[in-house]
Design a binder for these strands. Sequence first.
DNA 1: AATGAATGAGGCTTCATTCAT
DNA 2: AATGAATGAAGCCTCATTCAT
Lengths: 208, 208, 208, 208
Amino acid sequence: MKDPVKASLQEQLAVARRAQILDAAIKVFAQKGFHTTTIKDIAREADLADGTIYKYFENKTALLLGILEPPRTRAQQEMSFLLESDADIHSVMKAFMLQPLMAFKKDNFELFKVIISEILVNQELRERFHQQVLGPMLQGGEAYLRRWSEQGVISPQNIDLTIRAIAGMILGLLLEQSMGDQTLEAQWDELPDTIASLIVNGIKKEPL
Amino acid sequence: MKDPVKASLQEQLAVARRAQILDAAIKVFAQKGFHTTTIKDIAREADLADGTIYKYFENKTALLLGILEPPRTRAQQEMSFLLESDADIHSVMKAFMLQPLMAFKKDNFELFKVIISEILVNQELRERFHQQVLGPMLQGGEAYLRRWSEQGVISPQNIDLTIRAIAGMILGLLLEQSMGDQTLEAQWDELPDTIASLIVNGIKKEPL
Amino acid sequence: MKDPVKASLQEQLAVARRAQILDAAIKVFAQKGFHTTTIKDIAREADLADGTIYKYFENKTALLLGILEPPRTRAQQEMSFLLESDADIHSVMKAFMLQPLMAFKKDNFELFKVIISEILVNQELRERFHQQVLGPMLQGGEAYLRRWSEQGVISPQNIDLTIRAIAGMILGLLLEQSMGDQTLEAQWDELPDTIASLIVNGIKKEPL
Amino acid sequence: MKDPVKASLQEQLAVARRAQILDAAIKVFAQKGFHTTTIKDIAREADLADGTIYKYFENKTALLLGILEPPRTRAQQEMSFLLESDADIHSVMKAFMLQPLMAFKKDNFELFKVIISEILVNQELRERFHQQVLGPMLQGGEAYLRRWSEQGVISPQNIDLTIRAIAGMILGLLLEQSMGDQTLEAQWDELPDTIASLIVNGIKKEPL
DNA sequence: AATGAATGAGGCTTCATTCAT
DNA sequence: AATGAATGAAGCCTCATTCAT
């Protein structure tokens, strides 16, 4: 085991196994929900034995934590990259929405359901989510708003609350969609544009 | 038991008992979450025997459904009453926010957590919530927006999506708060005003 | 309560109530089986409250015991009356079968199922049944066989075992029928004759 | 686990475990009856954990079904073998009785009680019993009677009913014995002979 | 490293029975 | 005498987790 090549091979294998298990977990969680899913379900999906799961994850909750881990939440990184650019407000706003709103679309928002559902009830998960997903998202947005505010592009409202309201809108729309709202489902792709508009201009009719 | 007086007494007692159980359930659910709460917990809190719960509720899920029942969700009714009035946009918007944002404040949003958490995972509950809470909220708001739109007060954007975005913002803020966001917690009471402003005017600086 | 008329009235009422409850019990037991039937089922069928049952019967088992009580097991009395007569062997044998084989036919043998099923597992019930039903049946038959044996009509085989075999045949046929044997069901009415013949003559071809 | 040696070992172990559990179940069921026996009772007797039972049997009823499974009901097969032979009627008849009458003697008929008791009340069990035990028994006997009838050894009575009456006699005797009849218990070993005689010749005195 | 058999704690639910009215 | 609300013991079963191989 002192052979560094071997060691790194082992390591790579372990990483692969972890990924394999997480993929299975995501799939089954999305299908059946967290509490309804058994370790056996995941093991079967990953084509492993029950016990093997526990070599890579301490317990069932750790699987959910694993899903939230960095490599899988690359979302906000790409976003923050975008935020550095110099596009106009509407474009940036739209881009800000696009990522999260579309991210969950592929699996029909099932995974969103599972994660949020469990987050609401599990403290550790909640903190992780706040740190790894919500926090960065808010900070990124905040920085942007602050810059715009300094540039006099937007009115210097309470920025803390404003960015939280915007982020909340995204979360809330995902929530409503997850609850089976038909109207949202039908027009989902128009959301980024509509909302960006709403946030930038408000609902009030523009004075001529 | 053909005695009508006695009968109605019994009936009243039954109603009281139901309420007593629901109160206990709300309390314990809020403290421990749905899955973690046992029937025994609720029974103890209600100062009743386990079995008694089942005289009034078919099963554990029915307790959660009970929490969503009309008398306890009177919220949106009062709101819709408000919406009939002729106040200016900002005031109405603020009122629209006020109700839900404050409703859950008293129990530290714990109940919101539990309900949403379970809603995301339980179809029946989800449908009930959509029918009894979200639906009315959306319809009420939609009617308002439509009226304003006709009056030329607001720009005739996609109203369906707009109202959902607004409602989503409320839900999302509750969600962020439930996840332990400190900033929100500190400034919660300023939210209605800030958000109403945001929605009405947007973030863009007013052209002079 | 010292009024003897009143007292006897009370008493008569009590007897009627008992009967009412037993009738209900018989009906529901036959429909659903002993273990599957709840006191509530019986109470509902008897149009009484649960608690009332317990004023007349100590517990659920007592209801089954009640079903076996004399007035309802008048069977063997009529039979023993028949046995006194001087008919030929075949007729008597046939009569001996007729009563029990037909008694349970009316409720589709469901009650037989329930009683036997529980008898096999409940000692007290077993003893009662042996005393009140099986015993008299055996004794009646035994007396008859003995008389015939003395008269030289039948061969003096082991009478104890013979009568038990005959009674067993009856029980066993009821059992087979209860198990859903189609052939038996179709030809049930021919049984008394066929069996009487079998017992009297055996299966062996008569020597010319 | 692709190792075939290992796999077959596992398999053998599983079979053994099943047997171990069934043995325990038989023992406890015989002692306490089906409904009174808890899974814990069986687990304790088998020296296993409660949950382990469920790896091998779907539920409590499956344990009873297991008891009726082929390897344990090999009885009638041996009997049918006997029926092929060319012994005289009396011997065959006696053999026909011998097997079932003695099979249950070893455990004091307790198992018979439990099985029959539950069969009467459980449809699935009833069908299995009819298929696996009673059916073969009847068919075997029927074939025999029919052959004899063609050979002119026995009188061509209604063979369907006759074989059912004979089988019924066996069942009924087991039932009487199970109910605690002392006389039967004392003379149980003489039964096959006595009954064979009864069935072959009937009770009527032979005409000289 | 992987397996999967075994574990056993724990929850939901039913229902016979009691007892205050 | 009748009621039926309340009781609470008890059982079946699930499933996360462990550990010997």
